[in-house]
């Protein structure tokens, strides 16, 4: 069976149909019915779609924020749309499939290609979680410089809103946001440190009217949904069981993610004294290491 949906078809996504220059044909792999079913369902007509985009050069902060926000949003029933590129896109897809959420990957190439090919595992995971792979290009159409902005227009067109995690001042993410604005879709942006190149773009978007996002609720409110997660996990209970030194480590990490050296300096302890604690806390799941820095889980 050829998996194609044409513009005139009934099951063609409503939101996408509205945009100027909507793709005439959409090739897909995976589960069309669940996501774009015309009659009801959890996401009827693809109305609960959120595009999540971010820089290809996602920082560890960006990855962390994507994970925090997207896992909660996706778990609440929103379908996450993104472009399957490495960096921000990959993080968004990854976070979604980790909580078993549904996600749509819009490819910049023919439907039979996996691009970038080393993300095959993620590709499979998306399909396993009843997600969808989508493209307006057929067969083995190779990705080219001009196909990316075209892909971006579909990402924006499919979604009610766009969430930007990190973006440089000159980046593909801006193209998606530009499309979203012209289609009249909402833009959310995650603030970040202004010293970082990839937070300058999001700051610019906020200046231009994007809504600032500090927690998943900000986005969920727009979709008129409640968070499925009941507040922060029982971290207070866990704190009681911690030793004094572990508590001190937590306090410092809550203020600012640090690497082992920085933490040792902040606590005025030799690194050999805190190394054991760091490993143990990591195993217990209190903290997490990413890009050599430790974060509070």
């Amino acid at each position: 069976m050829e998996n194609v949906v044409e513009l005139k078809d009934k099951k063609y996504p409503e939101l996408l149909k509205k945009i100027k220059g909507a793709p005439k044909k959409l090739y897909y792999k995976g589960n069309w019915e669940d996501i774009f079913s015309a009659e009801g369902g959890p996401a009827s007509g693809g109305k609960n779609c959120l595009a999540v985009v971010g820089s290809r050069r996602l920082t560890s902060y960006g990855r962390r924020m994507t994970q925090l926000l997207v896992s909660e949003i996706a778990a609440s029933g929103i379908t996450i749309v993104s472009g399957f590129m490495y960096g921000g896109d990959e993080a968004a897809h990854q976070a979604t499939v980790e909580v078993g959420g549904r996600t749509i990957a819009v490819m910049p190439c023919g439907i039979d290609l996996i691009h970038p090919e080393y993300q095959e595992e993620l590709y499979q995971k998306i399909l396993d979680n009843r997600g969808l792979i989508l493209s307006e290009f057929e067969g083995n159409f190779p990705p080219a410089l001009w196909t990316y902005p075209k892909r971006d227009r579909i990402v924006a067109g499919l979604s009610q809103a766009v969430l930007v995690v990190e973006a440089g001042l000159v980046s593909g993410t801006f193209i998606t946001v530009k499309h979203a604005r012209s289609f009249g879709r909402k833009v959310f942006a995650v603030p970040g440190p202004l010293t970082s190149e990839v937070s300058k773009g999001t700051a610019q978007m906020i200046k231009e009217g994007a809504e600032i996002v500090t927690e998943a609720k900000d986005v969920l409110k727009y979709f008129k949904l409640d968070s499925c997660l009941a507040g922060p996990s029982n971290s207070i209970g866990a704190m009681i069981k911690m030793s004094d030194q572990e508590k001190k480590i937590m306090e410092n990490l809550k203020r600012e993610p640090l690497e082992a050296d920085g933490l040792a300096r902040a606590l005025s302890l030799p690194v050999s004294k805190i190394s054991a604690d760091l490993s143990l806390m990591q195993i217990k799941g209190f903290i997490k290491q990413e890009g050599n820095k430790y974060y509070v889980q």
């Binding site: 190394s275 054991a276 195993i283 290491q289």
Partner: peptide
């Protein structure tokens, strides 16, 4: 001891 093993784990293969 636990502390020795936990410290050793800091130097496990990472990146």
């Amino acid at each position: 001891g636990i502390i020795h093993m936990a410290e050793a784990l800091q130097y496990r293969p990472k990146i």
